[in-house]
Amino acid sequence: MSRSSKLPSWLKDGFGIVLLLLFILAFFNIDTLQEDEFFSLSPEWLTVNTIFLGIVIEAIPFLLLGVFVSSLIQVFVAEDTLQRFLPKNAYAALFPAAVLGAIFPICECAIVPVVRRLIKKGMPLHVGVVFLVGAPILNPVVAGSTYFAFRNDLSIFYTRFGLAFVLAIIIGGLMYILFKNSDQLKWRTEELRGKESNNLAQVPVNKQNRLKQTFYHASDEFFLMGKYLIAGALIAAMFQTFLDRSTLLAIGTDAWTSTAVMMVFAYILSLCSEADAFVASSFSNTFSSGSLVGFLVYGPMLDLKNTIMLFAFFKAKFVIYFMISVTVIVYAAVMITQFIVFL
């Protein structure tokens, strides 16, 4: 494992070539490798591996979508453009942000790079928060899957989207009260230096260069984000395999605890918001409609894999306040709706 700049360049090139040859060799022998079980693990760990690969393979297209949107914003959107479209009043920006979040078909794997990029481009923090919590739920694909999963009980469909819209605005507003327009992103010293020079020299570049930049940028950001996503997927896969759900189910007996249990589930399962409705409907035998709404609203806003991403890119104090606010607000709102709608 030689990856230091101090090593001679032939060794580094050689390492890369060997790695590539290994991949190609594995590619042509994928069936033999797997069927002969040269390497194997206990069934539980194979299940972990299966779920892990499932999440990673499934998430990569959406992560790519997120990093490409982010790099398009980076390369093509000038900072003053954003400022021009934002209302001057901080609270007035909340509602249009939620509406915009509903139009962008971006789910929770893709939203973190996009929001981070928008904030770096000068979007106020609280508007970014509205996107962060709203966009993964409020989008056409999620609406479709929720509709199909709960065709028998459309009240769940309506409460999910109603709550997501209202709560995104409330959470965004609360974040404004707490943090105003302070900078909550983590900046490394070299980034600050870069930011400086960037601001000074916004040289217009030719089109071909911009296209190349978009690709360079996207792949850099893929590596920046991907590591957190992969780590989160691994932890989620272990939880999915080793957590005995019956112990959690045993806790959730009344409306209060069952809502809490479903929110914990949503957090640790780290499902894609496009698919979580079907998982929720498989719980409909054992859980009340109200607690299913808790699962469907909380999961896309916060889960294990995006928590890791948030801690990597935002200041820890902000992430903790954000997580507490989202949890308390969603829980309270779901309990209130439960007593109004489902009783």
Binding site: L33, S40, I230
Partner: peptide, 27 residues
């Protein structure tokens, strides 16, 4: 290594289908 992990696991480990122990846990 984090990036190499899923690639290596994907190529090398046998495919597993879920069984009833998983089913029991999921309900």
């Amino acid at each position: 290594s984090i990036f190499l992990l899923p690639i290596a696991l994907g190529f090398v480990l046998p495919d597993q289908t879920l069984n009833s122990s998983v089913a029991e846990n999921r309900g």
